[in-house]
Design a protein around this nucleic acid. Structure first.
Lengths: 168, 168
DNA sequence: GAATTATGTCAGCCTTGTTGACATAAATAC
DNA sequence: GTATTTATGTCAACAAGGCTGACATAATTC
């Protein structure tokens, strides 16, 4: 409720109050992302899964053989948070673990046939929404949009954006 | 854990398996949105607030005088969820309520000077991130990006995107 | 052989969603 | 003018998915 150090914001640091703020894009991003995630959310409900399961399924699908540590690094959550959700995906047969060939302490993660199919089913409505939006907005330069999103990511994390596996 | 009706997804409905999926954009949107929200999150911490407070502050700032019901409709959460967070913003003096002039049951919401300043401070890093990304991606056509985001929103909700107040 | 590393797990807490039930005041209907 | 509906608030309980701290095990490395 009450914070410790309240940064005074009467005049935001290094703002001369004339800087134009992209309020419209900020708000649009909120609405767009909310609806974007609502499609798979509905499907996940049928499986008793949540958005957290979706993320894991996505990354394991597209970076097959990644270790638990690598997954933690990409998702930026604690191993306790991951374990709770990952365990369910393993127990229900969507993901399997195999001991690392070089380092047998590691657990390499792979999706099963079911896992791959579920990941695809979850991505489908999202992809179609993007596709429809691209056409509706009359965007020919898809690469520009890709560059924009990439540039929105913190520089130090951009290397994680490199696909280890071509997108299906 | 176990759902009731498991939609079989061996071959996703109305997919001929040749449809290209925008896996890369789906993933980029996840990373971009995560970093995009991390900027204000850090600032909010100092106030003992969370992302929920940010959303309320944003909408009340840009649609001053909106009622509780209107805010609920925009945020798409329950009044119990809203109440918990809104109450804190009122108690700490960032938002005030005034009885509706026509209908005195309604509570019109307004940000205080402090609320407006906080909303601006929260928006600033997000706006700068967008600005930097636009330049970095070499996007001249800002309007196209705006159209894209707008098109990503469910059609029936797009009327909520119309600003009642020019963006500051 | 000892220390470090990769992973798993237990217990408890927080935020922000949810549902259901009920209270109050003001507007509207009859 | 009483009855109903509406706008808002509030209590209680629950769920998902974050978090911290502590500890266990097996395998690797020093």
């Amino acid at each position: 409720m009450t914070g410790s150090t309240l940064p005074v914001v009467e005049r935001p640091a290094s703002s001369n109050n004339t800087e134009p703020i992209h309020f419209d894009l900020i708000e649009l991003l909120f609405f767009a992302y909310r609806d974007f995630t609502s499609d798979p959310d509905e499907l996940l409900l049928h499986y008793g899964f949540g958005r957290a399961h979706h993320r894991i399924l996505h990354f394991v699908t597209h970076r097959p053989g990644m270790t638990v540590a690598e997954l933690l690094d990409v998702l930026r959550i604690t191993k306790q948070s991951l374990a709770r959700v990952l365990k369910q995906l393993i127990d229900t047969g969507y993901i399997v673990q195999v001991p690392g060939p070089r380092d047998r302490r590691q657990r390499e993660l792979y999706v099963t046939k079911e896992g791959k199919e579920l990941a695809l089913a979850l991505a489908l409505p999202q992809s179609r929404r993007i596709d429809a939006a691209l056409r509706e907005a009359g965007i020919q330069d898809r690469a520009a949009l890709e560059r924009f999103f990439r540039a929105m990511v913190n520089p130090e994390r951009r290397r994680q954006l490199d696909r280890t596996t071509p997108s299906e």
